[in-house]
Design a binder for these strands. Structure first.
Lengths: 190, 190
DNA sequence: TCCCTCATGTAAGTAGTTACATGATTTC
DNA sequence: GAAATCATGTAACTACTTACATGAGGGA
């Protein structure tokens, strides 16, 4: 996945390996960690294979290597980005793709987002099924914490679904965190 | 981490490798995937090192190997479980520990949960700082989806915090998903 | 009879971390 | 002058996935 993240990061902008690690940290750092030990070898290989260009620049006595995606790299990246949602891949995988979804045509993007929503709905159903077989009252400490992580999964999946529907409609992000309450107010009025 | 998850799963109950994979799938499958390729070698090594006992049983013509944690394994597991929250570890790591938190004395468990809460509060602050440097209105498609994942991180961290406070007080799990609305009703009343 | 689940494992490959090694530039 | 950050990389290790290989038991 790192290869695609790199290509995505330097699609338009020339960056050094060091810059890329910072960028990744500040953007998708919540669910993906880049480290130098893997990044630098990956950059060399991508440049060698023709997916990236490399330009060396001396700044004082310090050598900097700027990388940028080639046409071939761009095509490879877009193929990856266009791929249908993988049910077996973890959520981080989808999230990393969505970060770059601005590069996809709206119709395809919407389709993929809806597919991901459908997948999460299915996950919720499976969780519901597991939950229905489990006790949820008068639990021992051991059972309580064991089962608690199931509810965590529930809540996170719900939250992700809310987020997906929200960004699919490209509603204003600045209001996303408040919108929870708004929804409940509406429900109360009914 | 797999080693500890295995030891935690067979603390009291004898299970086969196959059973363990199923158990893991049904309990922490949301954030941790076990596969046979890694599980079976791990089981052999843990038994070899004295952390697990192994009992072979023929069922018809089928050989089953039942594993269970030894006193040594239990101690090793509890040391891992008692360790302070690691700021560098991903959320999955903490979640896998919390699954077993019933095995910890309440005081230590509460302390660790509070530490994790503090860590997430810090994460939220960092996200807020990044967010404050970013535009959030009139975004291009590219910027919109890039920034959207930041808001995702926000929402998930909030959600995790709510969950942590909830389970720390051992409130009834069956009400966790509804409690959102309850909170907002209280806020409205004020 | 055929397919699905149960059941154990190996081999090859991919991904990712941690520690090490080096040195320049900037900021306090 | 010291500490933090910038900047590039290698080596060893750990973790994880995927594909392969084998075969029993149970249900349609």
């Amino acid at each position: 996945m790192l290869d695609y993240i790199i290509m995505g990061m330097v699609l338009e902008e020339e960056l050094t390996g060091y810059d890329i690690v910072k960028e990744v940290q500040n953007s998708i750092g919540n669910f993906y960690k880049a480290n130098y030990g893997r990044l630098y070898p990956a950059l060399s290989k991508l440049a060698e294979k023709g997916f990236l260009t490399m330009r060396e620049e001396m700044q004082g006595k310090r050598l900097k290597k700027y990388y940028q995606t080639t046409a071939l790299g761009r095509q490879t990246f877009l193929n990856w980005l266009s791929a249908p949602v993988d049910p077996n891949a973890g959520g981080d995988f989808q999230l990393a793709q969505i970060f770059f979804y601005g590069e996809l045509p709206k119709e395809l993007r919407d389709q993929r987002l809806r597919e991901y929503e459908a997948l999460l709905e299915k996950t919720l159903q499976q969780l519901q099924q597991i939950e229905s077989t489990l006790p949820s009252e008068n639990l021992s400490d051991k059972d309580y914490f064991g089962i608690s992580t199931l509810y965590y999964g529930f809540a996170q999946a719900h939250n992700t679904l809310r987020w997906l529907a929200y960004i699919r409609e490209q509603k204003p992000l600045s209001q996303f965190l408040n919108d929870h309450n708004e929804q409940n107010k509406k429900e109360k009025r009914q």
